[in-house]
Design a protein around this nucleic acid. Structure first.
Lengths: 189, 189
DNA sequence: TGGTTTGCCTAGTAGGGCTAGGCTACTACC
DNA sequence: GGTAGTAGCCTAGCCCTACTAGGCAAACCA
């Protein structure tokens, strides 16, 4: 029988595509095997288990997102950088809802430390250079930024904003204005 | 054979408890049946399917949260109300992680419209009365608030803040300060 | 060219979702 | 207080997914 040429990389990519199409929760080893015209048992030669697959998808997504953010951030500073970062983040989440959802799975500490998530975190901090915040305000601001972005995107995806007619794009840009305002004038105790 | 006294209400409550213990994704009809000392097939007399169960848990959680928020909000205004609301929200999510996660499932429009989610939304708007915002700023502000709360709580739960030593409680209260500041001085175009 | 490794296979276990159809305990009504 | 109906549970059985063990053949490599 001919070999299908399955590799972990191809499996991860196909899994990511599948996630975007049907949701991470429906990314099954069996479905992936069908996609490769192979029996599901065969994939366990490449994958430890189903969770392993999802972790790999998450790591792929983190890397892709970090790349996009890096590209968006190049040559920008201040509010420009904030908006570019935010839009890169949201656009990625909307183009790749499954990958984005996969990113939210709880990685164990060493995996997380080795992931592109740290690059992402560094870039978030880099944005704040334009706002002249020192610790611990910087950490608090990073956390607020991340919360706002993730919360907005997440609620947008699960339909949390549907009940109000106002276009979400408008609320998004006003939210970024507000975030810029509060970062510019971070309340000191 | 004796009757187990299973009702939809008891199933929903037990399902909610199960969700808090093992996560929504592990709330199975089979596990619930075991908990009631009953065969899984029997539950389909009370439940349409597994999704139906999770929706019920979500609705229960929305109602509980709305109650808590209402209690927290009583007699408060301005920043006081904002902080009370936010803490009620976060505390509920931390006490009931499974229920909170269940709340995020995508309800179909009519179910959502009939849920306690609308009470929640009304109360969020009520907070903004203390900040004198008119439409569409109000909607934008509500969305930003909700995003920040949900994002923070969500990231906190999935370990998104673990890589920095700063206590999350501190970042939380500073985030609320920032939110109050920006609502007080909402940037106009 | 023959041995080893690599990549796929079949077969089988366990568990979850769900349906069909059967039996029984309770309820209501005459 | 007997009996018809129904509500609440059951068994049996289907399909799907995760995962393991062990077999066989293609590819590689000495």
């Amino acid at each position: 029988m001919a070999r299908a040429g399955v590799t972990v990389e191809r499996l991860t990519l196909a899994g990511a595509e599948l996630a975007d199409e049907v949701g991470v929760e429906n990314v099954t080893v069996a479905a992936l095997a069908r996609r490769f015209g192979v029996k599901d048992a065969s994939l366990y030669f490449h994958l430890r288990n189903a969770h392993d697959l999802r972790v790999r998808i998450a790591l792929l997504a983190l890397a892709e997102l970090a790349d996009r953010v890096a590209a968006a951030l190049a040559g920008r500073a201040g509010k420009d950088a904030l908006v570019a970062f935010a839009n890169a983040y949201r656009d990625y989440a909307r183009e790749h809802p499954g990958r984005y959802a996969a990113m939210q799975i709880d990685l164990d500490p060493e995996t997380a430390a080795a992931s592109a998530g740290v690059r992402h975190a560094e870039m978030t901090r880099a944005i704040l250079r334009g706002y002249r915040l020192s610790e611990p305000d910087q950490t608090d601001a990073v956390r607020m930024m991340h919360s706002t972005f993730h919360g907005f995107v997440s609620l947008e995806q699960t339909g949390g904003f549907r009940h109000t007619p106002r276009p979400t794009d408008d609320s998004w840009s006003r939210t970024l204005d507000a975030l810029d305002a509060v970062l510019t004038n971070w309340p000191s105790r």
